[in-house]
């Protein structure tokens, strides 16, 4: 299977007066054609920054991409000229943003906003672009007539549908979905998610799904990357993650959500808070909160190891923890 996107050693920092914030630290990640990769982590772990980095849209200043390569079909997006990456944005790689309330421009009609991206990337007349926009609206379940309405006339869930229609209007090969359902009501969440999934399969689009909801991951993803303090601490297939969890942080995530299938009396949340990304601890970033931490963890940064079959983990004691966990 073809690899569409390959992120190598990506590091992104925000330089502010209070110090340098290490948002993304040396991450590696690849996405294959037609697959969905889930990027899971807490708020502030660098998920959104990674997605913005792929489109080279990290706000600068204060943000800057310090090192790394992002290969899209073998071409480095970070080395591309402004004009070239503009041709890719919206056409080959598009993004769904977290908050549909603010992602649409209030002074243009939704139809115009979708038609804009169509006529930008496709060689067509204004009428054709508008037609395509209306088609896309219908595809996401909004009637054609509403294309002349303004964003404030839509509800949150409807706005997110518009955003999705806009993102998919040019049949992108890669979709970056940044917590597409977080801002929506629970009842709408499932609908929207199902719709994204269905459209993605129909258009054979690959997807990077950013979320902090492991339930969503279990439903939609093929591969999962767990992000903590700007690093990918564990990566593997959905099965590997759920059955052979190896990183203590991932374990913590699973233990902090309620489960219906086992009889758990109480949740076990991860103690403490994520470290200040302006001043990360020495050694392993998770070590201050890790129940398995030993002396080595606070001194030496763990390297990424392969536990077999592409299951990658960044922990000194992953094997031991994995074995212990399975014994439980």
């Amino acid at each position: 299977m073809d690899t569409i996107l390959e992120i190598k050693d990506l590091t992104i920092e925000y330089v502010t007066e209070e110090g340098t914030i290490h948002a993304v630290n040396h991450i590696n990640l690849s996405i294959e054609e037609g697959k969905t990769v889930g990027l899971v982590g807490e708020t502030g772990s660098g998920k959104t920054t990674t997605a913005l980095g792929i489109l080279n849209l990290v706000p600068s200043p204060p943000g800057q991409i310090v090192s790394g390569e992002i290969l899209y079909h073998g071409e480095d997006l970070l080395k591309m000229s402004k004009g070239d990456i503009q041709l890719i944005r919206g056409a080959d790689i598009s993004m769904i943003f977290q908050d549909p309330m603010t992602a649409l421009n209030p002074v243009h009609t939704v139809g115009a906003q979708i038609a804009e991206v169509v006529s930008l990337h496709q060689d067509c007349s204004k009428e054709e672009a508008w037609n395509r926009a209306e088609e896309m609206l219908e595809l996401v379940g909004i009637t054609r007539e509403r294309s002349h309405e303004y964003p404030h006339q839509f509800s949150g869930g409807m706005k997110q549908r518009v955003v999705i229609a806009m993102a998919l209007a040019c049949n992108p090969t890669l979709l970056l979905a940044d917590e597409p359902t977080t801002a929506l009501d629970v009842t709408i969440q499932a609908q929207v998610l199902e719709m994204i999934n269905e459209l993605k399969n129909r258009l054979n689009t690959s997807m990077l799904l950013i979320t902090h909801d492991l339930g969503i991951v279990a439903e939609t993803c093929d591969n999962v990357a767990i992000m903590y303090a700007g690093e990918i601490v564990e990566y593997g297939t959905l099965e590997q993650m759920f059955t052979r969890t190896a990183h203590p942080y991932t374990l913590g995530l699973f233990e902090s959500i309620p489960r219906l299938d086992t009889d758990t009396n109480r949740l076990r949340p991860i103690p403490g808070l994520m470290p200040d990304p302006a001043n990360l601890p020495k050694g392993c970033a998770f070590q201050p909160r890790c129940p398995y931490a030993q002396e080595k963890c606070s001194k030496e940064k763990p390297l990424t190891r392969d536990l077999g079959e592409g299951h990658l983990v960044q922990c000194h004691f992953a094997k031991e923890i994995g074995i212990e966990k399975r014994r439980d």
């Binding site: 502010t16 948002a23 660098g46 204060p62 200040d276 990304p277």
Partner: peptide
């Protein structure tokens, strides 16, 4: 993220 770092200052 930036906001978070700033708010931890005080």
């Amino acid at each position: 993220m930036i906001r978070k770092a700033v708010s931890s200052q005080p």
